[in-house]
């Protein structure tokens, strides 16, 4: 199976001399749900901009379904649907017109464009708002409109640049469900996000970009497997003594009923429960101190991993 996206030695130097990308290479397989992570200014949006032609590359090669963008960008663009970070539609136009016009720019006849617009506006819960000027829509609705617009020509590769930024939790979950559904139907998805929980919940593979370089490119499973240490927070039924000791583990009393325990790779958390049980302390609930991926991300970006 040919890859959905291949990037080789891609670099970008802006006019003011800022080096946004330092020769990155990566590959995204067909059908994948791929996360691109990185701090602000890492080069994620520049990479996406180059793939969809809004940014001119300085050097390197980009192929979409093996179509080199330098040789036939128009053909490559037909494969791509893009949902940018910022709202980029005329807010005086109606949602239906925006989606139909976008279909027209891809050469879809008017009748088919109408059918597709109806299909995706309905799927994203915007059909009732189709004749409303888009400036009247909420932020979440505007984001969903951009997804409908990106899907109207039924691209094989959907790229979303922080699609859930500023969206409430309920809306974010429904967007996740929608994206999972279209991914299951065969659309390859590349997602940039600051919500690491989002990447962990949705994506199978990941690239972490920092200062224009890829510092990690693997499957999320592999990445999490490499975690050396996890910190758990235990809520205790009984009041804890001033000092709590659990042999072979680092434990710290947070407050009278909360305990923090570090579990190294190879250790079993059952040992913690057994030890606490012996001390007459019972656990009512337990959670991770931080998102596991977030911890790994911070380590990679700070160069500590």
């Amino acid at each position: 199976m040919i890859p959905a996206l291949t990037i080789e030695n891609l670099s970008k130097v802006y006019g003011d001399g800022f080096v946004a990308l330092k020769g990155i290479s990566l590959e995204v397989q067909q059908g994948d749900f791929f996360a691109m992570l990185g701090p602000n200014g890492a080069g994620k949006s520049t990479t996406i901009g180059i793939i969809c032609s809004l940014v001119a590359k300085t050097a390197g090669k980009v192929s979409v379904f093996e179509v080199d963008i330098d040789k036939d960008f128009a053909a490559a663009k037909k494969y791509i649907g893009i949902v940018p970070q910022e709202f980029n539609f005329n807010q005086f136009e109606k949602a239906l017109d925006i989606v139909i016009n976008q279909a027209g720019y891809y050469g879809l006849p008017r009748e088919l464009a109408r059918e597709r617009a109806e299909k995706y506006l309905k799927a994203l819960g915007l059909w009732e708002k189709r004749d409303v000027p888009t400036r009247m829509l909420s932020g979440g609705m505007k984001r969903r409109l951009m997804i409908a617009r990106a899907l109207v020509h039924e691209p094989k590769l959907l790229i979303l640049d922080e699609p859930t930024a500023g969206v409430d939790i309920e809306m974010r979950r429904s967007m996740w469900d929608f994206l999972k559904k279209i991914n299951a139907q065969g659309t390859t998805i590349i997602l940039t996000t600051h919500y690491l929980e989002e990447a962990e919940a949705l994506c199978r593979h990941i690239a972490i970009i920092n200062k224009g370089e890829i510092v990690e490119h693997s499957s999320i499973k592999d990445l999490l497997r490499r975690l050396q240490r996890e910190v758990f927070i235990l809520d205790c039924l009984e009041e804890l003594p001033e000092s709590v000791t659990i042999s072979d583990f680092v434990a710290r009393r947070v407050d009278s009923h909360t305990l923090e325990v570090e579990v190294e790779k190879g250790q079993y958390i059952n040992q913690v429960f057994d030890e606490l049980d012996r001390q007459g302390i019972h656990i009512s609930s337990m959670r991770n101190r931080a998102n596991r991926l977030e911890e790994m991300f911070v380590n990679l970006v700070e160069g500590a991993a």
Binding site: P84, N88, I98, Y105, Y106
Partner: peptide, 11 residues
């Protein structure tokens, strides 16, 4: 309003 991008990303 950046809506020119609708055209620029299209073929």
């Amino acid at each position: 309003n950046n809506s020119v991008e609708e055209l620029l990303v299209s073929p």
